[in-house]
């Protein structure tokens, strides 16, 4: 199975998403309940000293979450954390990438920890962190 095929240092499949749009940020505000006008109102954003609205950090974390759920499934994620390192702007084309960091056993599960990051088309990292997923039990045959 996949767990046995991957070893620390291996890269996960990268994921490149369509450019971030204003419409998407309005929809993310509705879906997430975060109505901070910094994400939806250009005149408010300009008053705050920004050139335009910026994406919700959690939208970018949501993109990164797919690295974990594509690997192991939504019910298998045990931990997920990121640090936001830059503002994601309209038109940014985000690419999520990741690397296997560690394989170990915990609570009778075979766990895999991976580091991940999301960067735009200029390679500017907007969020980075790690997740841990369970990929079967310690009783699974190798």
């Amino acid at each position: 199975m996949l767990y046995d095929e991957l070893t620390p240092g291996d890269a996960l499949p990268t994921l490149t998403l369509p450019p971030v749009t204003h419409n998407q940020l309005v929809r993310y505000s509705g879906a997430s309940g975060d109505y901070n006008p910094l994400h939806t109102d250009p005149s408010f954003a300009r008053q705050a000293g920004l050139p335009d609205v910026i994406a919700h950090g959690m939208l970018v974390m949501g993109m990164l979450g797919r690295m974990a759920t594509d690997l192991a499934g939504p019910g298998q994620v045990r931990r997920f954390g990121v640090r936001f390192t830059g503002k994601t702007e309209l038109g940014d084309i985000m690419t999520c990438s990741g690397v296997v960091a560690e394989k170990r056993e915990e609570n009778g599960e075979r766990r895999m920890r991976c580091t991940v990051q999301a960067a735009n088309q200029r390679g500017e990292v907007k969020a980075s962190g790690s997740f841990e997923v369970a990929m079967g039990t310690t009783n699974d045959a190798c």
Binding site: L17, P18, Q24, R27, Y28, A31, L59, G62, M63, G65, R66, A68, T69, D70, G73, P74, G75, V77, F80, F131
Partner: peptide, 27 residues
């Protein structure tokens, strides 16, 4: 809105077939 096409978040029947009690929760 995140752009995740996973049917486990959209289709209850697909989620149940995969062993979830209902739609799966994204992280």
């Amino acid at each position: 809105v995140v752009g995740d096409p996973n049917p486990l978040y959209q289709d209850v029947a697909a989620a149940v077939a995969a062993g979830y009690p209902d739609l799966a929760a994204p992280p």
